[in-house]
């Protein structure tokens, strides 16, 4: 089964505009431990199950668009190779939910 990640990402991108974020311009709270592991990863579940479309496989590498992260933690537990260094944004940064 294939999944059209580009189309899904376009939908998500539009959706994230409604949210409020206090983006930490200096550091990402998400980091790939070893890019080579991603390269070899067959399914790359992070590229399709992230609700914020943070992970994009582009020209042979995984980019992490952390600014839209919804901080749910799914990628951390779903990564089959434990290849993500996952933390919370620094205090006060990241998403700011008004309704929650």
């Amino acid at each position: 089964m294939s999944i059209d990640t580009e189309k899904i990402r376009a939908g998500i991108e539009k959706e994230l505009y409604v949210n409020k974020y206090n983006v930490d311009e200096h550091q990402s709270h998400l980091r790939v431990k070893d890019p080579e592991v991603c390269n070899k990863c067959e399914d790359k579940p992070c590229t399709y199950l992230c609700p914020a479309g943070v992970y994009v496989w582009e020209s042979g590498q995984l980019t992490v668009q952390y600014s839209g992260c919804l901080e749910c933690g799914s990628c951390r537990f779903a990564c089959p190779h434990d290849n993500l260094e996952w933390g919370y944004p620094r205090g006060g940064f990241g998403m700011v939910l008004k309704m929650g």
């Binding site: 089964m1 294939s2 999944i3 990640t5 899904i8 939908g11 998500i12 959706e15 399914d43 579940p45 399709y48 199950l49 992230c50 609700p51 914020a52 479309g53 799914s74 537990f77 779903a78 089959p80």
Partner: peptide, 16 residues
């Protein structure tokens, strides 16, 4: 969470 991985589903698309 294991099902999204196995069924290759995206939660946002599912919601839409």
């Amino acid at each position: 969470l294991s099902d999204y991985a196995e069924f290759k589903q995206n939660p946002h698309a599912l919601l839409q």
